[in-house]
Computed example of a mutant assay.
Amino acid sequence: MEHRVTNEDGDEDLVWILGWGNRLRHENVQWLEGCFADAGYRVHTLQIPDFPADFYGEWVRPAKEYVADLDDYRLVGHSTGGLIGAYLDGAETTTYLSPWWGYTEDMSEGILDLVGKLGIRHKLIPSGVSTREAIGSLATDSQLADGPGNVSPRFIRETRRGHRERPPIDEDAVVFCTLQDQVVSTRAIGDAVTESQVVLYDGGHELFSSERREAYVDDVLAAVDGGLAAVETV
């Protein structure tokens, strides 16, 4: 799992686990990373592998090992990073950006389970998530090009496993999402947290690639700093 530390002289540690297909080099990733750093955090940005053969071994365990070396930290998880983050313990605050807690409702669970049972690693199935409309209007051409075009049955098996076995979400966690999301299930988000924990925004799947990101970043920083109580008073 690749990582980068930004603002090493920051007062507190913030761990940001990126989503599937996000890269440390992406301009929009660096924009939000810079917002965290400007707020005084020592930012640990984790880039996950695209195609894990084992959900726990390649996604969850490396993240757990990384945070184990930190005395205290705040956690931000975007999309698949939000799924991985749900398995971590010990964060002072937890903020989720469009967490991937389930496949979109137009994908049949029965078909997903059937495909997942094949278990092969050949990338045969279009992901359908690498469009500017789905990701956000500020998504760059290089960012869209880096989005994996196809996934394998093993990828579906392992991510479905992660969805099924996900621990309960903390009652003081905050979730930012858009009802227009074409990438993750908003129903799964609604099933996992209370209405008071959800902050809606206008845009695509990535808040940090959405046109109105500047209007929401202060709320994100408030959630990171003070958790649900801070957002409720904004």
Rank of each mutant, 00 (worst) to 15 (best):
A63D: 03
R61A: 15
A53V: 01
D69S: 10
P49L: 15
K64F: 01
V60I: 15
D113P: 10
W100H: 09
R74D: 03
D54T: 01
T80S: 13
E58G: 03
S98F: 01
G81M: 10
D113F: 05
G57A: 11
V67Q: 10
K64L: 09
Y66R: 11
G90M: 06
L114K: 12
I120A: 05
S98M: 02
S98L: 02
G82V: 13
L70V: 04
D71W: 00
S79N: 07
T80M: 12
T95Y: 01
K117C: 12
Y96P: 00
L88F: 03
D89C: 05
T94Y: 04
K64D: 03
G77P: 09
T94I: 10
I111S: 10
H122N: 13
A53Y: 03
E109W: 10
E65Q: 15
D89W: 02
Y66T: 03
I111H: 07
F51C: 00
L75Q: 07
L112H: 12
F55C: 00
E58Y: 01
D113V: 11
L114H: 14
L97A: 09
L114Q: 14
A68M: 05
E58P: 01
E92C: 04
A53M: 02
T93Y: 07
V60H: 14
Y103R: 03
D71C: 00
P49N: 15
F55K: 01
E92I: 02
T80E: 05
D71P: 00
G82Y: 05
G82A: 11
G82R: 08
G77N: 11
P49G: 13
L97M: 08
G82P: 05
H122M: 09
